[in-house]
Design a protein around this nucleic acid. Structure first.
Length: 434
RNA sequence: GCGAAUGUAGUUCAACGGUUAGAACGUCGGGUUGUGGUUCCGAAGACGAGGGUUCGAUUCCCUUCGUUCGCCCCA
């Protein structure tokens, strides 16, 4: 018999109960924040026709970085690599009957065929938050408020992360003013995106190669080194996007959110974003990476053949966000769903014990019963290891008197109580754990 | 797709070109301990895979697979 591989598939993870408990804890906090802003949850199939992912026109990514295959009917399908095409499809499909603005979120699992490295696996989850049908600046403001709210929900200090914002329109305008062709612009934007990975000299050389003109290069460098909007040239400052960024910064500051900066080098690739883009960076040098990104993409729904809808959204990956939480020690011990285990003192008591267990469950306690008949010590050790908080002892005397022994593992204390009282003790303890 | 590091029990680590590859923790069983993380005894459990060099390979070489970290890419 050949040995079967026990490890999960490359780049994917097994979620043992403690891992799943952590994931649920994190996702639930995400949900609480976005739902508090009135967002509702949706989902879509994990498989989509490959064509949907080709809308953005990147055949190369489909070929090299997706799970794409022919189904039994020779249709090309792709395992979703992001949620945006699916949600755009859903909105386009009911374009006329939905009432705007829509506030939708989802936590899909996604697959990308990539080489793994820190913070990047092949299967991962993402919180996707999108708003359709509001083109006002308050949509941008709300997105950034939600983002900050998520970090606050985990008690992150604002000094531990930085929100960066930029507008794609400003860069486009600059490159246009300099007479760059569209192809050149794309290459220059790609280079700007890599700025932080290069030395100043390398960057200057590469830039000159693209612009072919050191005066243009100088203007680009000047643009990129701006710390505030006011340092830009006049014809950029007069763009609505420039005023918008300033307004967002002021509004957020008034809300107490001051870890926000204008960053002209922020590009977020060059896909469907149409104006404002933003990212959040972990300030810890050990984990200095983007943990979240998003922006306005007003064009995508329109590409599905219906009237366009203004759209803004962002996504956070579970892997990088968990790294952030761990880096800043924001993960506390997470309890499993089991609350109590019943230990039966002697075999003869099993029927009475099971009856008591049934009563406890009917009153809402999540209870397991150790029916192995092992020595008390062994049962106790197993219970301790399972991470349960309460142990209920059921023996002949307890069953007769209808007073059961409840032991709190954390405090070590042990008391005898009626089943009703035991239920309220356990329920009370739920509020102190969150 | 490219590059670097790495692969010994469940885990963290040893040792060694040559009899039965060790330990700790964990696991399981048993003895003490009133119902616990104590203590004692015992047990199970590993050289990632395939080739080569050699009288002999876990050890040296090659290939492959896995893992980790970079690059590319990052939706």
């Amino acid at each position: 018999m050949s040995k079967i591989e026990l490890k999960p598939y490359k780049g994917a993870r097994d979620f043992y109960p403690e891992d799943k408990a952590f994931q649920k804890w994190m996702f639930n906090k995400w949900r609480e924040v976005v739902e508090s802003f009135g967002y509702v949850e949706y989902d879509a199939p994990i498989l989509e026709p490959t064509d949907l992912f080709l809308l953005k026109g990147n055949q190369e990514i489909i070929d090299s970085q997706t799970y794409t295959f022919l189904d039994r009917g020779d249709r090309s399908v792709t395992v979703r690599t992001e949620m945006t095409p699916s949600i755009s499809r859903m909105v386009a499909s009911k374009r006329q009957e939905l009432s705007y603005p829509l506030r939708w979120y989802s936590i899909p699992n996604l697959w990308r065929y990539e080489r793994m490295q820190k913070g990047r696996l092949r299967e991962f989850w993402q919180l996707n938050v999108d708003m359709f049908g509001d083109s006002s600046e308050f949509a941008e403001l709300e997105m950034l408020q939600i983002i900050d709210g998520i970090f606050q929900k985990f008690q992150a200090k604002r000094t531990s992360y930085t929100i960066k914002i930029n507008s794609r329109l400003l860069v486009n305008q600059l490159l246009n003013d300099l007479g760059m062709t569209e192809i050149k612009s794309v290459e220059i934007i790609r280079l700007l995106d890599k700025l932080s990975k290069m030395s100043a000299e390398e960057f200057a050389t590469e830039l000159d190669k693209l612009t072919g003109n050191s005066d243009s290069s100088k203007k680009i460098v000047q643009f990129m080194s701006a710390k505030t909007i006011d340092e830009l040239t006049d014809n950029l400052i007069k763009l609505p996007s420039a005023a918008l960024i300033n307004k967002i910064l002021v509004d957020l500051s008034n809300l107490g959110i001051r870890n926000v900066v204008y960053d002209p080098t922020l590009m977020r690739g060059f896909d469907y974003y149409t104006d404002i883009v933003f990212e959040v960076f972990d300030n810890d040098p050990e984990n200095n990476r983007a943990i979240l990104g998003g922006g306005r993409y007003d064009g995508l729904v329109g590409q599905m053949g219906v009237e366009p809808v203004p759209t803004i959204g962002f996504a956070i990956g579970d892997v990088v966000f968990a790294d952030f939480l761990r880096t800043h020690k924001l993960v506390r011990k997470i309890n499993l769903s089991i609350e109590a285990t019943m230990i039966i003192r002697e075999v003869d008591s099993i029927n009475g014990a099971l009856a008591a267990a049934r009563d406890l469950r009917e009153m809402g306690v999540k209870l397991s019963v150790d029916t192995t008949g092992r020595k008390i010590e062994k049962q106790l050790k197993s219970a301790l290891k399972s991470g349960v908080t309460y142990i209920i002892f059921a023996g002949a005397e307890e069953i007769k008197n209808k007073l059961f022994t409840i032991k709190n593992i954390n405090s070590g204390s042990e008391e005898k109580h009626s089943l009703q009282r035991i239920v309220s003790i356990i329920k009370d303890s739920r509020n102190t754990i969150s």
